[in-house]
């Protein structure tokens, strides 16, 4: 459907940058408008990839934790719902955090997962 969500977010960013920012005299408010515009730019660019990247990260976490891949489908039947996928993902990340805190040193697989996940979840 057009405008897509990304196009709408980008449109809102343009209003802030082109229409609102030049009218703002207060330096504090100017600074906040800059942060808000940067956040909208990031959201517009990232939004389409959020769910696929989250699912990819869940699959990587299941592998590093030795969890059956079917668990996501049990937790979130059918096409993953973003909120439910995030809940499931949070649970896996909590489990990984506990394993890291209990281990003497993280395994190379855990390190590799953490490094890749930073890229996927930015």
């Amino acid at each position: 459907m057009r405008p897509t969500l990304s196009e709408q977010i980008e449109g809102a960013r343009k209003v802030l940058v082109e229409l609102v920012a030049p009218q703002v005299a207060d330096p504090y408010a100017q600074e906040q408008v800059t942060y808000a515009a940067a956040a909208l730019e990031h959201a517009a660019a990232r939004w389409p990839q959020v769910l696929p990247d989250l699912v990819a990260d869940i699959r990587a976490l299941e592998e590093v934790l030795g969890v059956e891949a079917a668990a996501l489908d049990e937790a979130v039947p059918g096409v993953p719902d973003l909120d439910a996928a995030e809940d499931y993902h949070r649970g896996l990340r909590a489990r990984l955090t506990d394993e890291i805190m209990a281990a003497a040193e993280p395994s190379p697989e855990v390190r590799a997962y953490l490094s890749d996940s930073i890229e996927r979840l930015k």
Binding site: R90, R93, A94, L96, T97, I100, M101, A103, E105, P106, V110, R111, L114, I118
Partner: peptide
């Protein structure tokens, strides 16, 4: 607000 596995790993590194 959520689990922080990277920071958990860094905390362990710092302690070691």
């Amino acid at each position: 607000l959520e689990p922080q596995p990277v920071l958990a790993m860094i905390e362990q590194w710092l302690r070691r």
